[in-house]
Design a protein around this nucleic acid. Sequence first.
DNA 1: GTGGTCTAGACCACC
DNA 2: GTGGTCTAGACCACG
Lengths: 133, 133, 133, 133
Amino acid sequence: MFIHIDPSSELAIYDQIVRQVKFAVADEAVQAGELVPSVRELARELTVNPNTVSRAYRQLQADGVLESVRGTGLAVAQGAPEQCRAVRMTLIRNRLRQVLLEAKHSRLNGENLRELVEQELAVIEHEKGEKQA
Amino acid sequence: MFIHIDPSSELAIYDQIVRQVKFAVADEAVQAGELVPSVRELARELTVNPNTVSRAYRQLQADGVLESVRGTGLAVAQGAPEQCRAVRMTLIRNRLRQVLLEAKHSRLNGENLRELVEQELAVIEHEKGEKQA
Amino acid sequence: MFIHIDPSSELAIYDQIVRQVKFAVADEAVQAGELVPSVRELARELTVNPNTVSRAYRQLQADGVLESVRGTGLAVAQGAPEQCRAVRMTLIRNRLRQVLLEAKHSRLNGENLRELVEQELAVIEHEKGEKQA
Amino acid sequence: MFIHIDPSSELAIYDQIVRQVKFAVADEAVQAGELVPSVRELARELTVNPNTVSRAYRQLQADGVLESVRGTGLAVAQGAPEQCRAVRMTLIRNRLRQVLLEAKHSRLNGENLRELVEQELAVIEHEKGEKQA
DNA sequence: GTGGTCTAGACCACC
DNA sequence: GTGGTCTAGACCACG
């Protein structure tokens, strides 16, 4: 499970951890039942205070993504991958809707929007191609 | 110029003011050269701390949207509407690109994305229709 | 709002705060919309670390009992009193059911249980009477 | 002696063992003088760390429920069944009293409480009936 | 070894 | 003034 922290991000560190763990779970980079890195280990790896990792893990427990296995560590909860995927999908939907709404307010009509989307899709594909090349 | 503050929003109040002023300028609801309400007046109107309005106006001056007219107040800068429109457009572009990228990471291909966009466009149109009705 | 901390309790301090705030809200000792004591103030009052109070308040926000009013403090959320009362009621129900179940397992029948309940009710009433006297 | 461990319980594993042994003794599922399974055996059976079983047995010795029989193992102490039954009874009494007290604080009077108890008794009886059916 | 809690003290943005 | 985040370091129970 590769987690990268951007200390200059506007997002809190603990939040970056939460999100990236959820992503890893959604992608089944860590599978249900598997143990996540220990608080101290991840803290060392990210050169971050253990309390910060602990807070992220606590949040993930509250969200039902992780489960505590006493004296052993924290494991990915059963059903968490599906749940994370579903949540991610609705998040994407909502953000997309917001952007489109804001574009509408800027007096773009449906056709303009489709064009805009095609342009951005092209940009993404292009970058992808460069990375692969 | 109608500004609405949502105190329970995650955005800072001064930021809400900044954004909405920029929107108003972009839409030419207030035109170049026109005076904006005084700090005190707007603060009273929004039932918000004058410091907060002051900070928003300071930000808008730094962004080149407002200009101080000595002894008179703050006015919308020449060229501000075009600038605001341009900025808004790139903001929308960036956000759209981000959403599409994240969707890509969720293993959606171009065709899935187009479909998603169409769905959301339909939702937006539908809501619009209901409001008008 | 009177909160008392028992440092020798098996419950974590932050949890004691959470529970007692919920009780106060349920009893409308603090009403919806009202501000709760500031983190620093309550910490001083309870001679506890501000972080501990902060953690309790964060939990209460997650539970929808408190709402952050930026730069002003934390306020009791609208509808929180009813919600807290309802939650408390189901908690009591569940605990009562558990006790009764365990009593059943100890081979007490319904009649024994009713008798037991009456005895305890009498004890409670008696103590109440002494306090009032 | 049937012991079931719930690893996801909030109770510590050693505590679950302690309680269930006491229950078994109270119900005379194991009788006074009888040997309990060895630490290793029970640990294997419950797929639990031997240290954990050891700790539970230590606790049970401290509570006077088990006695070490040199060179042989651990046996249920004389008088333990009666003692366990008595302890269990007072535990139930205390928990019942606590629940009733808390209910009182929620402004329920004696009559409300009796009604509540009757409802929960009915629920328990009903579930029991379903299980038997 | 594991997670959980608490303290102390610092820094930040917001109002 | 407010809450929010982070660090550092300590102590505890559990397995």
